[in-house]
Design a protein around this nucleic acid. Structure first.
Lengths: 127, 127
DNA sequence: CAAGTAACTCTGTTTTTCGAAGTTACATGT
DNA sequence: ACATGTAACTTCGAAAAACAGAGTTACTTG
């Protein structure tokens, strides 16, 4: 998605260097990919929580209120697979596992800040 | 979520003017609210698609590839309820309905642009 | 008047997400 | 020594969400 490159008349397009050359304006492959992750329950919140610092499984579960063990486990595996977070085992004793944002995970944070600021202004509360 | 206000030692916090006064760093109520919508399948993509201009139900369904009628219908109702999009009926004939971003919906777009840019760089493809 | 399009809704099936319990490994208290 | 506790998960059956596809109503076009 590129900042709308205003066309002559009201017909705005998204087309940029790398996509959506067709005149149909339904693309934005990158956004679709982003929401392949973020469009799943909890992913965004987990990422946002990890912005506060790394934490272990049990700790994360406490910080992300309402998530279940199995879903937390699934999400961590997905995010890890996508390279957004890093799982590291500190081989104790006691052994402990901790999850933290990776380089690309950290690169997401500016967008998260904006999202959060937007929500603060535009989603009053009681949805 | 606020840009991390570095604390003395490694303990970063998110606490800002309006939330998370407690020392537990698991808050960010605004982000959680944002993902109450965006964390559902299709919501983000629908919003991103509407950034290209308003469109009717059938048109949207074509532009958001893969969505089903019933889910599109649900999402439009939700987004409308939250005031992110506006449904307007142009009473023809032929009568037609069209959906467009509202003021707050448009306010989300800068965050979407960032998200998209991030995905373009950090989510190569084939997930 | 037959066919098509828009905008949905309804129904039944598949996929996700859920809470709760179970597992393995180590640590601590008594 | 042994019961208890914590961390890190996995497994299971049930509830909720998403899906595909058929049906509905209203209006237009050939």
């Amino acid at each position: 998605m590129n900042p709308p490159p205003k066309t002559a008349a009201g017909t705005r397009t998204l087309s940029g260097p790398a996509g959506c050359e067709e005149s149909l304006r339904h693309c934005d492959a990158a956004l679709v990919r982003a929401f392949g992750f973020l469009g799943k329950r909890w992913s965004g919140v987990i990422l946002g929580t990890l912005a506060n610092g790394e934490s272990g499984f049990a700790d994360l579960k406490r910080r992300v209120e309402g998530i279940s063990d199995s879903v937390l486990s699934d999400r961590l595996a997905e995010l890890q697979g996508a390279g957004l977070i890093v799982r590291s085992v500190e081989s104790g004793p006691p052994v402990s596992v901790s999850y933290a944002l990776s380089e690309s995970g950290r690169a997401l944070m500016p967008a998260m800040f904006e999202l959060s600021a937007w929500a603060a202004k535009n989603l009053p509360d009681a949805r």
